[in-house]
Design a binder for these strands. Sequence first.
RNA 1: GCCGGAGUGGCGGAAUUGGCAGACGCGCACGACUCAAAAUCGUGUUCCCUUCGGGAAUGAGGGUUCGAUUCCCUCCUUCGGCACCA
Length: 893
Amino acid sequence: MSESKKTKEPIEIEAPWQDKSYQPQAMEKKWQEKWEADKLYRSVINERKPKHYALTMLPYPSGDLHIGHWFSMIPPDTRARYMRMKGYNVLFPMGFDAFGLPAENAAIREGLHPMKRTFENINRMRTQMKTMGTMFDWEREAISATPEYYKWTEWFFIKLYNMGLAYRKMSPVDWCPNCNTTLAREQVWGEDRHCERCGTPVIKKNLDQWFFKTTKYADELLNFHGLDWPERVKTLQTNWIDRSEGASVIFKTEVGNHDVEIFTTRPDTLWGATFMVFSPEHPLLEEITTPGNKAAVEEYKAQAARQSDIQRGAVDKDKTGVFTGGYAINPVNNERIPIWIADYVLMSYGTGAIMAVPAHDERDFEFARKYELPVRGVIQPLADNVSKYIGETEKNLRQLFDAAEEGGAILFFDEADDLFGKRDQSENVDAKKGIIDINWLLENVNKAYIGPGVMVNSAPFNGTKVNTEKGRKNPGIAAVIDWLEEKGIGRESVNYRYRDWLISRQRYWGAPIPMIHCDVHGWNPVPEDQLPVLLPEDVEWRPTGESPLKLHPTWKNTTCPVCGEPAIRETDTMDTFMCSSWYHLRYLSPHYDKGPFDEAEYNYWMPVDTYTGGIEHATMHLLYTRFFHKALRDAGITEGNEPMLQLRNQGMVLGEDNEKMSKSRGNVIAPDVLVKRYGADTVRAYIMFFARWEMGAPWDSQGIEGSARWIRRTWHLFTDQNQTGSASDETKKNLRRKVHQTLRKVTRDFENFEFNTIISSLMELMNEMYKAREAGAAGGKEWKEAQDIYLRMLAPVAPHISEELWTNYLRKPYSVHQQDWPKVDEEAAQEDSIEIPVQVNGKVRGRVVVPAEAGEDEIKAAALASEPVQKFLEGKEPRKVIVANKRLVNIVV
RNA sequence: GCCGGAGUGGCGGAAUUGGCAGACGCGCACGACUCAAAAUCGUGUUCCCUUCGGGAAUGAGGGUUCGAUUCCCUCCUUCGGCACCA
């Protein structure tokens, strides 16, 4: 408050132009201070008004605000302002996701405590956000790295733990053996995957870590009922969870007789399993590997540990693997099959072991061919289905069939109809009847067969039809599952690619996991009255990046909450996604100390009505926060099934070189410089105008001149001496029409988050107003209405200039931001006549003007009578005349 | 590699439901104002042939349709995500 006294210092204008009357820097600052003093943007519960919770993803305090932050904040800010004018009580808060790796890395590099750097950055970024003229309610600011915040992050962990949703499991991390520390993905560099600090090749290390059972909610997370979310986000989440139906089957190891559970979506191919493949991390490997294969297996394991899952999973990559020397028994036919290991089997998907059916799985086929393992077909295809399988020309298909016939590989010519029912008898090659011997096909086509057919070599299921449906909808699969369950060797099951959420981080700068380990009583949560577990401030930063919490001499020593004997604290901290899973709740009451949030605030504001942020969060943050909400709902803490009803994503702003903005590339655009040069209103307008918000675009620093011109022309439209005159009735009518058409368009665009066309519409209206003023319209009642509506529409976009013109030039009651959104006068927006293009054979040859209320016949007659059409018809009758919804006439001759 | 987007003039983009391709703006060119420059204002600006006028064009190729930037198929390029960046 006190620092606002020294505002009257001269403002330096660094613009290439000089405009004595429009000086945004001083004017914008004046209004920002007045709004703040008047608490214009303070949002408090008001039961008399409908609420609107507009949330935008909170930034990480990286240092300075860059243009990407503006792109994510300004359009939602204008929309929040629009909603306010529409009569909603709007909550539009901001905060900082303040824990995380970069501050910790900087601390290691420079020895500066991450707290210090983080809060310096926050203060700078908050100031920058205020110069943008945003309507954030700063009294609701929440910062995830403050004890008053992370106390409740810890509290939530304990709630989830008590619900049985948190558990410990061994899980691999990328590990630098030299630095003795875990590495994040971005700290692993190059194809050879070395440590960014010391260059040492990275290895995988198994650590005991905390997980949340997100998979418990997998099915519910697939349900988007009632959510107005972009289709592509729903698709991304659905594919990310990737539910697949199939069966779990127990194979037995020959050595030790251990159960090895495998999951398969194709239990109908169990009889075709000719080997098993274990992940290189599989826990049974030690025992089943025979001495003669030990060395090869160990070497392969080491090799696999150096790769990422993405590298390992790549389908086009050469399959590699080694034989363990061990064998397993296939429970469906008691066959003895070899156990291999291969890096394409991931411990993180399914059970870490698969049955390999090379005849009917692409990857298994490739593997079997490479290592000369047997391939046994168990699904015999109908000849009809083969063309797609071989994927070749008709000629080759014919040759293949001729060869098959000659080699006796086409079977059951007569039985085919009985099995599949009567089919089309037309004599094309695809419809050739019969069933082709699968093993002959595999030899001759040399790839796995995936498609419908009849089971063979699969007693007792020989002759059973299978199609391409998944799960029980497939008769072959359904029959086999029933049989497996009856025999007790398998069961129907559902598998997800989605994994439980690993929340442990071997780092300092995060919320401590509030758990205590006692040798007698195991793991127990820190008692609630001892929260928060505070991060110690006297920590040692080693250049190797070892966790300072582990190195701290005393911090981890505590007492067991059960017996009071000495015990050890968990030294891992939580994934920062944990903090950002509930920040929308902390905004409700950021300083509340009786719980994570004040219930009265929750009941009024939640759920979030509009959530905006980058598409890059589609599968991680947005799934975590949905999971979190559902878990809290089951704990009785939150209500409803979903935290955020409507979601909209903005695209990314690239540098002028069309590359992602980064300090190292030197292509970062600093908005501070632009604000100083043009004023915030111009930068806001350009942010909205320069790209489609949903898409993003490379930055273009030249284009901002256009927005600057528009703002200045707006200024002069209102502040220049208006030469009042006598405009014609037509001029007045046209002005009103344009005003209300623009209002209609701008309103619709705000509803649809189409921000760039809001600016173009306002530019068009301004150009019209200049013309109308030229024609003498200034001063009349249509002119005054145009000014009024124009400024109301401008207010969300350019809050400062619109306030100045509204309050100080039009002398209307302060503040423009407390006015209502105007209503469209549909009658005024109506056109008198419409111009309709006339096409002949799909090409525009002319146009006719008809009254707006003209019917189809009238339009048709006018089109046919028009001169260009007559010319093209040359006396002939048109074959067809299409009148498309008063939009266009097409005449076909 | 897998999943999801995007591709329209020199540039950013516009185009209700399949109906005039290029709104609005940048840039550029010419003109006005000026001693001059900047700023401002005005005119023009997809490409090709050009007298009228005509032809081509929305990443490439194909399809559906009276009509496709829009729907379908194949391909190319490019961007985002892939679980420890947030």
